[in-house]
Nucleic acid binder design. Structure first.
Length: 213
DNA sequence: CGGCTTTGACCTGCGC
DNA sequence: GCGCAGGTCAAAGCCG
C-alpha cells in the first residue's frame, strides 16, 4: 500500500481545516500533512489559461517544491481545492452521446461546464491510488511539457459521474497528481482500502462549513 | 463471457 | 482561419 503523506503549506495548515484533519488520521495515511489550495481567489484556475491543467499541476509542484518537507517526508501529498464555479457538468449528465446528439455536433458540449476539482499531489511509486472506489479508465493523453501521460478515469458506479485524472509530474517523477472532479453519491466500494475519498468528503464538508474559505 | 485497458479518432476551446 | 492542446468516445484487444 502506499502511505500517502499529505501536507499543508505552512499557512493554511492552521485551523482552517482542523476538523478535516481528522480524516487524515487514517491508518494508512500515518500522520499526513495536507497541502490545500483554495482557489477561491485565483479565479484563473479554471480555464483562463489553455494549459490550465498543466498550470495547476505546476502550481502544486512549485508550491511543494518549496520544500524540502517532501524530501524528508518521503511521501507527500498536496491538495488543491478548485472552487472555481459551481458548474454542472452538462455532458456528464448524459455522456451517452446519442446518435442524434452526434449528428448535431453543435449541440454537443455546447457549454463547457465544470465541477469543483480537488488535486492531490502524492509522492508514490504507483500512479493509481486505491481510494476505495472502482474506476474505469476511459482515456490517456500525452500532455505538453510532461514526459508522462495523463490518464482519465471515471467512477463505474451507476449514476456516479465522478471523474479523476492521474498524472505524474515531469519535474519530479516521484510525485503523482490525482485530480478529482465531482463527488461520489454512493458508499465506498472497498471500505478497508485507503480511504482517500473520505478526505475529499471532509474537504468539501469543511468547505461548505466555510472552514476553508 | 464480462469487465477493463488500450489507443486512435474526434470534438471543442483558445491563442496567434 | 489555422494549429495546438486538452478532454472524451468507442472499437478492438486483453485478461480473469
Amino acid at each position: 500500500m502506499e502511505n500517502n503523506q499529505m501536507f499543508f503549506p505552512g499557512s493554511s495548515s492552521s485551523a482552517s481545516s482542523s476538523s478535516s484533519m481528522a480524516a487524515f488520521s487514517s491508518p494508512n495515511m500515518g500522520s499526513p500533512q495536507v497541502l490545500l489550495y483554495s482557489s477561491s481567489g485565483t479565479a484563473n484556475y479554471g480555464g483562463d489559461d489553455r494549459s490550465s491543467s498543466i498550470s495547476r499541476h505546476s502550481l502544486l509542484g512549485s508550491a511543494m517544491g518549496t520544500e524540502n518537507h517532501a524530501a524528508n517526508g518521503g511521501r507527500q501529498l498536496a491538495v488543491k481545492h478548485d472552487d472555481d464555479d459551481h458548474y454542472s457538468d452538462d455532458r456528464a449528465e448524459h455522456h451517452d452521446q446519442s446518435p442524434a446528439a452526434a449528428d448535431n455536433s453543435s449541440g454537443k458540449m455546447k457549454k463547457k461546464t465544470r465541477k469543483p476539482k480537488y488535486a492531490f499531489q502524492t509522492r508514490s511509486q504507483v500512479d493509481i491510488l486505491d481510494d476505495g472506489y472502482r474506476w474505469r479508465k476511459y482515456g490517456q493523453k500525452a500532455v505538453k511539457a510532461n514526459r508522462f501521460p495523463r490518464s482519465y478515469y471515471r467512477c463505474t458506479y451507476e449514476g456516479c459521474n465522478v471523474k479523476k485524472q492521474v498524472q505524474r509530474l515531469s519535474k519530479d517523477e516521484g510525485i503523482v497528481v490525482t485530480t478529482y472532479e465531482g463527488m461520489h453519491s454512493h458508499p465506498i466500494d472497498k471500505p478497508n482500502s485507503d480511504n482517500f475519498e473520505h478526505i475529499l468528503s471532509q474537504m468539501q464538508l469543511a468547505n461548505h462549513t466555510g472552514q476553508l474559505g
